[in-house]
Amino acid sequence: MFEAKLTESTTIKRVLDAIKDLIQQANFDCSADGLSLQAMDTPHVCLTTMTLRSQAFEVYRCDRPLSMGINLSSISKILKCAASKDSVKIVADDEGADCAEFIFENESADRIAHFELKLMDIDSEHLSIPEDSDYQAIISMPSAEYRRIFSDLSIIGDTITIEINKNTACFSVEGDIGNGSLNLAQTDSADEKNPVTINVKEPVKMTFPGKYLNTFTKAVPISEFVTLCLTDGNPLAIEFSLPDEAGFVRYFLAPKIDQ
């Protein structure tokens, strides 16, 4: 038996909004620790991972591990039927269930909606992400700043270079109409309301596709801050963490490399 109840639908709605433009379908792996998934986009440029830890749920029961193959567009359609303050309960049989049940209940518990989502058999490749990567540079910034930088730059072109030196990050773009760049310095005071922190072991300069950096802005409502981790010649890791360590959405983006 798998049973998981979120107090408010907002949490799962935001997480799905952050991944559904990149992934069409994925296996939601349920274990005693929580709900997680990982999937590549169709061109295999980006790997998206998501975890909702068991503590994110008001009720969480997973008697044995199960994998639910879900079409992201379908689950999003069903979750549109939940008001943001409605609770969401997901129920599935752990013995080869062919559907999962979604129950939405309003705050006064006098309106209860039931939906069934058909599950799919998805044959997906699980990739090994190196743990505790020793990144050359880590930058943390308010997620609203992330959105502004990459929505602005990706309008100019799709080749965005991130260069991080001591205390400064430079984001630049080259496009058909021209080019642009933006420098972001580490904020001086720890009391600053919207801090930018930059940790550099070694300066790094890498190029990434702007279209993806812009797509990741869909995760901005999840988290007040975002962390970007870079190592020369390796994928960029971007993390949006849910409050109270309830989980995260992480993107790993393959770089553009000068051949």
């Binding site: 590549m40 295999h44 790997l47 990739l127 090994s128 994928p235 983006l253 393959a254 553009k256």
Partner: peptide
């Protein structure tokens, strides 16, 4: 020129 790499060139299957 600059070429886009693929994520599965970096992370291998289990």
């Amino acid at each position: 020129g600059v070429q886009q790499t693929r994520i599965d060139e970096f992370f291998k299957p289990h």
